[in-house]
Design a protein around this nucleic acid. Structure first.
Length: 434
RNA sequence: GCCCGGGUGGUGUAGUGGCCCAUCAUACGACCCUGUCACGGUCGUGACGCGGGUUCAAAUCCCGCCUCGGGCGCCA
């Protein structure tokens, strides 16, 4: 449509053709208004019944909400119109009629359950607030890519269909690959590590990960977007620096480029870019602080994983993004390197939002012998991972990296109550369609 | 995987044994209304997830199934 004018661009004095959805019709009797909505906003179409073509009035006011129409007419300045301008139509064409009864109300007068919204995502995304979430999500991904580029990292894409999992025994989706057993990849972990040993040295990947865990929570998905980073000649501390930079860049991008969207979500007042360095607590300090809050019935002891309740108590105590470092080796995966001076302590770290874990990372074990030993200690058969370990024989530099949950980043940034809100078509325990 | 709580017109809800041939809002249909901006007004259409049971009587209690949400574990 060459001659289409966006509603926000319709200037007084012009004759324009606008195209979009019928948001609402208000018929006051002798005068009626049709509110037309497009990507840029809304505009009012005025029908004064006296002196207007009867067919035009009948068509314009007979159309159902959410139908697609094009309207050609004169734009006039009108202080009484919501946007200060309105169109007096010469012609109106119903391009696609909508059913009179809609499965949810895009004008937002009546709430819909998340489940109803997800079943009707297209209609749901006609709402300002829902649309804003995904525009912000896009900005987060854009900013993150730019931040990675500033770090001189190369974007890569690794296989999602794999022969073995990352950590061996965890829950994977099995598939059949030309008669062979295969799985959906749960993480690009091993592949991105191989790339730091390649000529690329520093890489990142933004892509789907698949986990077959049958959890049922507002913060888990079975298909999620992982933002992964890995660099040669980085230690865990430098990896944390990069992590902080990238997460802050996401917030900065949204603050700079998504004011309108934040307003739509009623967050423009409270949205804050994290300032200063994220505190770095050791695991030991973390459990001590959790114990000191007195929120837990039982005191944590060294070696315990942090229970959800403990994460919440600590998050509230810290009150901002923070890292937990120096985890016990035994509760971190085999590919995480231990501290050289203390085999009980790993270089693994998590980056936390006050409400949940966002990032998991660490310095990697780059020494072939230690790596193979690690596989065996975790009860995994190193031979199954030959494609991975072999590379470590041919000059694998020390390296570190992390994985960030893309949806969790958006969710915590916007204070969404459910991670499914941050995915167009979420895949969870019971949802496989749409 | 374990545990808990829900499912009532298109949508969101009220109703916890008889007061319910089921409340309200919105949507939808008809009519009235010349400045609405959640327009207003009058009237109307439309629902108890499925199956079985208890009871004189079930939306309401019990059982099974389906389905949705949440807590934990685990994780991003």
């Amino acid at each position: 449509m060459d001659d289409r004018t966006y509603t926000t661009d319709a200037a007084p004095g012009e004759t324009v053709t606008v195209a979009g959805w019928v948001h609402e019709i208000r018929d006051l009797g002798g005068i009626a208004f049709l509110i037309l909505r497009d990507i840029t906003g809304k505009i009012q179409i005025k029908f004064e019944k006296d002196g207007m073509d009867d067919d035009l009035v009948e068509t314009g006011l007979g159309v159902h909400r959410e139908s697609v129409v094009t309207v050609t007419g004169d734009v006039e300045e009108e202080p009484r119109a919501p946007t200060g301008v309105e169109i007096t139509p010469d012609s109106l064409e119903v391009v696609a009629e909508a059913d009179p009864e809609l499965p949810l109300d895009p004008s937002g007068k009546v709430d819909a359950d998340l489940s109803t919204r997800l079943d009707n995502r297209t209609l749901d995304l006609r709402k300002e607030e829902t649309k804003a979430i995904f525009e912000i999500r896009a900005e987060v991904l854009r900013s993150v890519r730019e931040a990675f580029r500033d770090l001189d990292a190369t974007e890569i894409n690794t296989p999602k269909i794999v022969a073995t999992g990352t950590e061996g025994g965890t829950e994977l989706f099995p598939i059949t690959y030309f008669g062979q057993e295969a799985f959906m990849n749960q993480s690009p972990q091993l592949f991105k590590q191989l790339m730091v040993g390649s000529g690329l040295e520093r890489v990142f990947e933004i892509g789907p990960i698949f986990r077959a865990e049958e959890h049922n929570t507002p913060r888990h998905l079975n298909e999620a977007t992982s933002i992964d980073f890995e660099s040669a000649f980085y230690d865990h501390s430098e990896a944390m620096d990069a992590c902080e930079t990238v997460v802050k860049a996401a917030y900065e991008g949204v603050a700079e480029n998504c004011q309108e969207q934040l307003e739509a979500l009623d967050l423009d007042e409270e949205f804050e870019v994290p300032e200063g360095d994220f505190p770095r607590l050791t695991y030991e300090e973390a459990i001590e602080r959790i114990n000191a809050t007195g929120e837990l019935d039982e005191q944590l002891v060294w070696g315990d994983d942090l229970p959800t309740e403990g994460e919440h108590a600590l998050g509230q105590d810290v009150g901002e993004h923070y890292f937990i470092t120096d985890w016990p080796s035994e509760i971190k995966p085999f590919y995480i390197k231990d501290h050289d001076d203390d085999k009980q302590l790993s270089t693994g770290f998590d980056m936390m939002h006050p409400t949940m874990e966002l990032v998991s990372g660490g310095q990697r074990e780059h020494r072939y012998d230690h790596l193979v030993e690690g596989f065996e200690q975790q009860g995994l058969d190193p031979e199954q991972f030959d494609y991975y370990t072999e590379t470590f024989k041919y000059g694998m530099p020390p390296h570190a990296g992390w994985g960030l949950g893309g949806e969790r980043l958006v969710m915590t940034m916007l204070g969404l109550g459910n991670i499914r809100e941050a995915v167009l078509f979420p895949r969870d325990r019971q949802r496989l369609s749409p």
